[in-house]
Design a protein around this nucleic acid. Structure first.
Ligand code: SF4
Ligand code: SF4
Lengths: 137, 137
DNA sequence: GTTAAACAGGACTATTTTAACCCTATTATC
DNA sequence: GATAATAGGGTTAAAATAGTCCTGTTTAAC
């Protein structure tokens, strides 16, 4: 329970990788996959999600690739999580009420929702900038 | 990502149900399943986990059933999560290092581990006692 | 002491989610 | 026009979760 997906971790690694390369530098998926040690195809999907969210920017064509779409202190871990996994739903009923058979009689939905919010606050508290500092120091 | 399991929610509901019945009262799985509206067989597994963790106590035989094993302010949401899902592992490498192909080159393991710890602190901050008050108030 | 109602738990199956792969555009450089 | 890259749909494979079944053990009641 409560384990992050591999895709999210791929995405986070990719973003920190791009960050160390500087804001302007264009990097291909192939380079990142080789350097970080994971599947090119799968990372590619993660990058597409990050791009749609504006976290990464892409350049198409032969000399194309990805770069960061924002400065490192404008990207939080929560942003990456949402870009890749979509809106967070700690409980099934968050997706759609009828996903839970006891929705109408459930009394701790309120608590679960505040819990989810607190977790989001935790994720939003770390920017890529601060994460890189933490890793270095 | 980061969704709690149904079994955990079943367990949490069961514990709050037992709590409202008072510490001494013995309740059968059948009664709880009927009352809360979920599968007897599946709830039974959750109760067995809760019992092993000391959160619930059981009485075997004809007039048997379950009751709380501790007072409501000695049980936290984290306790229930651990009883049912086992030790939390936000990242794959927490289970076993070789579950992650990039373990040796990963730089944000430290961050992920502190994140996990903070989530545990959140869960441990709510006792069943305080949860019930929150629901009532 | 036999019966019946309950917990205990192993083993299996089904469902859902996640991960991975494949294949075809499209874009832009050379 | 060839090539190297992103964009993305669709399919398959693997893993985790949910749910079921079946057998045993305990104990109150008769
Ligand atoms: S049990 Fe309550 S909180 Fe959980 S999914 Fe159902 S309605 Fe939502
Ligand atoms: S990427 Fe890092 S934190 Fe995540 S599982 Fe691998 S070693 Fe652990």
């Amino acid at each position: 329970m409560l384990q992050v997906s591999r895709k999210f971790e791929y995405g986070l690694h990719a973003v920190t990788y791009l960050a160390t390369k500087g804001l302007g530098r264009v990097v291909t998926v192939k380079e990142m996959a080789d350097e970080l040690g994971f599947s090119q195809e799968f990372l590619s999907k993660a990058m597409q999600s990050l791009k749609r969210a504006g976290i990464a920017a892409s350049v198409q064509g032969v000399k194309g690739g990805y770069m960061l779409g924002k400065s490192t202190d404008a990207i939080t871990v929560a942003d990456i999580a949402i870009a890749i996994e979509g809106e967070p739903h700690l409980v099934r009923c968050g997706v759609k009420a009828d996903r839970c058979e006891i929705f109408s009689s459930c009394h701790h939905r309120g608590y679960m929702n505040t819990l989810q919010h607190k977790i989001q606050v935790l994720l939003a508290a770390t920017t890529i900038h601060s994460l890189l500092k933490e890793v270095a120091g």
